[in-house]
Amino acid sequence: MRGMWFLFTQVDQLWLSVVLLVPAMFFASFPMPTSTASILVLTPNQFRAQISSIFLLISSLVGLGIGTTLVALLTDKVFQNPLLVGHSISIIGAFATVCTIVLLKTGCQHFQKSMQVEHAESPLKS
Rank of each mutant, 00 (worst) to 15 (best):
A96R: 01
N81Y: 06
P31G: 12
W15M: 01
G67K: 05
L16G: 02
C99A: 13
M32L: 07
F30P: 03
F27Y: 13
L42T: 07
G65L: 11
I51Q: 10
L83W: 04
W15R: 04
Q50V: 09
S60T: 13
S35N: 12
D76N: 12
N45R: 05
L16K: 13
I54H: 06
T68S: 14
K105Y: 03
L103M: 11
I58Y: 01
P23S: 14
F30R: 07
T75I: 07
H87P: 03
P23R: 12
M32D: 06
F27T: 09
V78E: 00
V18Y: 02
G65M: 09
V18W: 08
A49F: 03
L61H: 03
L64Y: 08
L74A: 11
L103P: 00
S59M: 08
L61W: 03
I92E: 00
V22M: 08
L61T: 12
Q10P: 01
V78W: 05
V18H: 05
N45V: 10
M25Y: 05
F55C: 00
V85Q: 15
N81P: 04
L56Y: 01
F26T: 08
S38T: 03
V11E: 02
L103G: 06
S59G: 08
L70I: 13
F26W: 15
A94V: 03
V22D: 04
F47Y: 10
I92S: 07
V11F: 01
Q13E: 11
V19T: 05
L42F: 11
V19A: 09
G65A: 06
